[in-house]
C-alpha cells in the first residue's frame, strides 16, 4: 500500500495595494500559475490580507503549510525560510495574527498542527501603490526559486522537517 500523499498549502498574505506588502500574494499567484502549467495538483493555495482565527481550521487539514509574507525584519537580507513553532505571542491589535499563533490555536482547538514554515521576503516600501520596488521583485524571484526547489527537488513535493534556508543557499 503506497504512502498517502502529503497535503500541502502555500498561504500568502499581505496587501497588494501597499507596494511590497503584497509579496506573499504575488508569490502565490505566480506559483499557482506555475503549478497549473506543470500539472502539479498536489498542493493548494490561499491568500488573504492577514492571518486570522479561521486559518487555524484551514491549516488543520494539511500536513505541510508554508506561509509567505513580506518582511522588514533586520535578519531578513532578501529571503529566508524558517520553521514555525506554536507560540502564544500575539499582536496587540488581535485583528492580525502571527503564524506561530495560528499554529498554537490550531493545536488547542484541533489537537494537532501541520509542519509549518514561514517564507519571509524582504520588502522596502509600503505606500498606497501597486507597483513593487525593483529590489522586492528581485527577492520575489529568489523566493520562487527557493520554494520550488524546496517542494519539487525530486520532481514531486518533498520537504524536510527542520530548515532555515536563505536566498543564496537553495538546497
Amino acid at each position: 500500500m503506497g504512502e498517502r500523499k502529503k497535503k500541502v498549502l502555500i498561504y500568502g498574505y499581505g496587501n497588494p495595494g501597499r507596494q511590497d506588502d503584497g509579496l506573499g500574494i504575488k508569490l502565490v499567484e505566480k506559483l499557482e500559475a506555475q503549478a497549473e502549467k506543470n500539472g502539479h495538483k498536489s498542493m493548494d493555495f490561499e491568500s488573504n490580507y492577514q492571518l486570522n482565527i479561521e486559518d487555524a481550521h484551514t491549516i488543520s487539514t494539511y500536513d505541510l503549510v508554508i506561509f509567505v509574507d513580506a518582511s522588514v525584519e533586520k535578519d531578513v537580507d532578501d529571503i529566508i525560510l524558517k520553521t514555525v513553532m506554536p507560540t502564544e505571542k500575539t499582536e496587540f491589535t488581535m485583528h492580525a495574527m502571527l503564524p506561530g499563533f495560528i499554529l498554537y490555536l490550531c493545536q488547542n482547538l484541533y489537537g494537532k498542527y501541520p509542519d509549518t514554515y514561514l517564507l519571509s521576503i524582504k520588502g522596502y516600501e509600503f505606500e498606497f501603490m501597486e507597483d513593487m520596488t525593483d529590489r522586492a521583485k528581485e527577492n520575489l524571484k529568489k523566493a520562487i526559486n527557493l520554494i520550488t526547489g524546496f517542494l519539487f527537488s525530486s520532481g514531486r513535493p518533498e520537504y524536510h522537517s527542520k530548515v532555515i534556508m536563505r536566498g543564496d543557499r537553495p538546497e
Binding site: N48, N52, I53, E54, A56, H57, T58, E88, T90, M94, Y104, L105, N108, L109
Partner: peptide, 25 residues
Amino acid sequence: RNIIEVAREFKELAVQGVMMRKFGQ
C-alpha cells in the same frame, strides 16, 4: 484575557467563533 484562554477553557465556543468567521469569509 485572550482567545487562547478561551480556547482552553471554552473550546466549543472558540471553535464556533472560528467556524462562523470562516463561513462569512
